[in-house]
Amino acid sequence: MKEITRRDAILLAVGLTAAATLPLPALAAESAMDELKKFTGGADARESGRITLDMPEIAENGNTVPLTVSVDSPMTSEDYVKRVMIVASGNPRPGVATFHFSPRSGVAEAATRMRLAKTQDVIAVAEMSDGSFHMAKAAVKVTIGGCGG
């Protein structure tokens, strides 16, 4: 067996560090995009202004950040919002929740409280009954992250 020289050890260490640090943020962002793609089936989601994501600009405590999402829709049986998915691009797992509406909802609006690990963009995507998708983003600054340690 080949002996491990000092040079090999350094190269190995550098390589491992690079492997460990580089792909992680890329992976997280990618999986947020993956979640979105899974939801839309590859269709385009436009930032059309029909969907509003209301969140605080600054969240002191990432453990519980209020969120209200609303979509401009008449909510009739011909024209309504089917689903709204919330994705947190900077969380270790980007999925947050998916709301399922029906014409009986009357108004396409829902509110909850979520965890944010760090400062990031939160994305909401709505699927309408005509098959179109609409998107909105909210940038939230987080003072204390909310995913435990």
Partner: peptide
């Protein structure tokens, strides 16, 4: 069924849900 939510771990402790119905 008038409203449903699929929930992931990113929802805060003591999950709160607010919605509407006609």
């Amino acid at each position: 069924t008038v409203f449903e939510v699929d929930i992931q771990p990113a929802i805060s402790a003591n999950p709160y849900m607010e919605f509407n119905m006609r």
